Simulated assay, not measured.
Amino acid sequence: MSIQAQNTITEAEVFTTTDQAVGNITFTNNGDLVYSHHPFFSPEIRVVKYDQKTNTTSPFPNLEWNTPRATDDNYLSNVLGIRNDKNGIIWILDMAQRDNVTPKIVGWNTHTNSLERIYYLPKSAVPAIAQPNDMVVDTKHGYFIIADEDIGNGGDGTKAAFILVDMKTGITRRVLEDTRTTLPENTPTVINGKHLAVNGVDLLIGNDGITADANFNYIYYGPLNGTKIYRIKTVDLVNHDFTDTELDSKIETYSDKPNNGGMSIDKEGNLYSTALETKSVAVVLAKDRSVHTMIKDDNLVWPDGVSYNHVDGYMYVSAAQVNRGAVFNDGKDLSTKPFFIFRFKPIATGVSFR
């Protein structure tokens, strides 16, 4: 995959630095950041809120929800995916891989500061090998649409899929598992000449980055290790009458892409995709689907989640340093403090509430 322009479209601005790796970022209605501490580093506090007025952080939604215990499972085990919706609810995707609890989506109402709802995800849709890492909160059609990259306990990317959760009923289904657009390609992640590998074997990661356009008409997605972004009409993806074969026939190959993590979009349809190997964020222009470098910075090591803040008009992106984690470096954590959160102005107004 060749990026059309080596020069960046705009500059990256350091928003803040942290002592722990940041995974995905979302926002409250007043623009405060809520983000996951990246689960690859086994953080004590799973999710935090960053108060822009005081430049301080606190456990989100509170300390109790970030404290594992044996008496019940109303706590967060390990979290990467986190999204907001138009109703002021922060939805937290708990992969539940650190503790013996059921994977779940926890909705916290920031208006009432109270639990909105918990959706438990059954083993039939989220087996042990799953790693449900990111999602779209589609309030138009009433679905959580989750990208499962399939690198959970014993997973190797070959069973990557979508997980669909009906917001009304809670019914959860697994679709497009082990299919051409959810599976990783043989495009290993190589950063500074070093392969992302475990015990000498390249880690190939399936269905990962995901976003929806402003009207929830299309879902855009792709495997982390892969050269293409795909899209499918949302009404088709959530239609329980279609078989995987029928769904596959409705998928469009949309554009090229780098090996990427998070994905976002603006109101003109320009797609923003973190480019893991080049310390940058790429953009796919809606006008011709060409791929360009949006921002680049030496401290943007493993850019992970990218999200739009509807209050200040910036896209935010974390630098998680995942490739420096112990699992990829013979048991030695090579990450260095501080960790960075960057922001930049998108080409057009971004899309909120995905």
Results as ranks from 00 to 15, higher is better:
Ala5Phe: 05
Ala5Thr: 15
Glu13Trp: 04
Thr18Arg: 13
Ala21His: 05
Tyr35Val: 05
His37Glu: 15
Phe41His: 11
Pro43Glu: 09
Arg46Glu: 10
Val47Asp: 13
Gln52Phe: 12
Thr54Asn: 11
Thr54Tyr: 05
Ser58Ala: 14
Phe60Gln: 09
Trp65Glu: 07
Thr71Leu: 08
Asp72Asn: 15
Asp73Glu: 15
Val79Tyr: 00
Asn84Tyr: 01
Asn87Pro: 04
Gly88Ser: 08
Trp91Thr: 07
Ile92Val: 14
Val101Thr: 15
Val101Glu: 02
Trp108His: 05
Thr112Lys: 12
Arg117Trp: 02
Tyr120Asp: 05
Pro122Ala: 13
Pro122Lys: 14
Lys123Glu: 14
Ile129Leu: 02
Ala130Trp: 00
Asp134Leu: 03
Asp138Thr: 05
His141Gln: 12
Ile145His: 08
Ala147Ser: 15
Asp148Lys: 06
Asp148Glu: 10
Ile151Glu: 08
Gly152Ile: 00
Asn153Pro: 00
Gly155Leu: 04
Asp156Ser: 14
Asp156Val: 13
Val165Gly: 13
Thr169Ala: 08
Gly170Val: 10
Ile171Asn: 13
Ile171Asp: 13
Thr172Ser: 11
Asp178Cys: 10
Pro184Trp: 00
Pro184Gln: 05
Glu185His: 02
Asn186Ile: 00
Asn192Ser: 15
Lys194Ala: 09
Asn199Ile: 02
Gly206Asn: 00
Asn207Met: 02
Asp208Lys: 01
Gly209Gln: 10
Ala212Gln: 04
Ala212Trp: 01
Asp213Ala: 10
Asn215Met: 08
Tyr218Gln: 08
Gly226Cys: 00
Arg231Met: 12
Arg231Asn: 12
Thr234Phe: 06
Val238Lys: 14
Asn239Leu: 11
Asp241Arg: 10
Thr245Asp: 14
Thr245Val: 10
Asp248Ser: 12
Lys250Gly: 02
Thr253Leu: 09
Thr253Pro: 05
Ser255Met: 09
Asp256Gly: 09
Lys257Glu: 09
Gly261Pro: 01
Met263Phe: 01
Ile265Gly: 07
Asp266Thr: 11
Gly269Gln: 05
Ser273Asp: 03
Ala275Tyr: 08
Val281Cys: 12
Val281Thr: 14
Val281Glu: 13
Val284Thr: 14
Val284Gly: 03
Leu285Thr: 08
His292Thr: 04
Met294Phe: 00
Ile295Trp: 04
Lys296Asp: 08
Asp298Gly: 15
Asp298Asn: 15
Asn299Met: 12
Tyr308Ser: 08
Asn309Arg: 11
His310Arg: 10
Tyr316Leu: 01
Val317Leu: 05
Val317Glu: 06
Ala319Tyr: 07
Ala320Phe: 03
Gln321Trp: 01
Gln321Pro: 07
Val322Asp: 01
Asn323Arg: 10
Asn323Leu: 07
Arg324Leu: 15
Phe328Trp: 06
Asn329Thr: 07
Asn329Met: 08
Ser335Tyr: 00
Thr336His: 09
Phe340Gln: 13
Phe340Ala: 10
Lys345Leu: 10
Val351Gly: 10
Phe353Val: 03
